[in-house]
Design a protein around this nucleic acid. Structure first.
Lengths: 157, 157
DNA sequence: TGAAATTAACTTGTGCACAATATAATAGTT
DNA sequence: AACTATTATATTGTGCACAAGTTAATTTCA
């Protein structure tokens, strides 16, 4: 049977093809890049989301505080409390941070960076550099792509 | 205290800032775009990964078959069997597909698209168009971005 | 003030993701 | 044939991710 007749009677829906799906590319690459973090985070006994929580807490230090409320944290991470609360509990049980209900407003739980969480910062400093070295992608291209992704995320919200 | 002294004695690690992390942008946007699928997939009673499985099976039809092995499916989806096997079992229990161990090679399990799984294709045809209409992002920009993501994924493998 | 609305966090339940391990069948080798 | 290596799938255990619903504290406003 000639090639051109092969799909006779069958519809073609290129928009439904996996390789044409923006979302699938995004989803695959996202998982793939997180996978490249895994071996670097393993020595710190951290998962990628746990690492993100520490990034936020470390960044707070530059603002002269070592605490942040759960609600602000969920906003920064763009995750909901159903994800964040158990995540924080696991990190609390590892001694990386503490969770304390605020006196002024009893609804609020403040997350505080503990010494053990702070101590991981020095090791973590090497991670971004280490990833760039492994990769064959040019850093300025990564930066440009990041900006495009952020732009699109802003448009969707 | 003057602003310039505010961080006195504290290191600044811009590479560790959340807004400078390519991976975080990727991860956030990926979840955000999948979230935009959710309301469109709900009427079909599908999750996004289940939708991806059907995309692959529907695409097989153009090749004049309605089956695919589990191993080929995991390669297409770039997921491992620990994810795919339970996913397929849930879809099997919904009557979308069947799983049958091959006679020729008893190691292989063939996944077959059932009528119910095929019937969802007509409704799914509207999804890509529907997403584009909602979005304020230009289609050619989405396409260009997708190609960049695919390129980077190829470089990482 | 007191009812209604809002905010903050937690809980429950389902469904991925994936590392690590297990099991069994086939292929390749001596 | 027997041994080894490879391939294919499944299983176990941990940790997200999120929808939906709950509880409790604060704010708003009639």
């Amino acid at each position: 049977m000639p090639m051109k007749d092969k799909n006779k009677g069958l519809d073609n829906f290129p928009a439904l093809h996996l390789e044409n799906q923006f979302c699938f590319s995004l989803y695959s690459l996202s998982r793939r890049v997180i996978q490249s973090y895994t071996p670097l985070l393993k020595p710190l006994d951290l998962t990628y989301p746990q690492y993100l929580v520490l990034l936020v807490l470390w960044q707070q230090l530059e603002n002269e505080t070592n605490t942040i409320s759960v609600s602000k944290l969920t906003k920064e991470l763009k995750l909901d409390t159903g994800t964040v609360t158990p995540l924080l509990k696991r990190m609390e049980s590892k001694g990386l941070l503490s969770r304390t209900r605020s006196k002024k407003d009893e609804r609020i739980v403040m997350v505080e960076l503990l010494a053990k969480g702070l101590s991981l910062r020095e090791q973590a400093k090497k991670i971004p550099q280490s990833l760039l070295c492994q990769s064959t992608v040019e850093p300025q291209k990564v930066m440009a792509l990041r900006e495009q992704l952020q732009q699109m995320l802003a448009l969707l919200n």
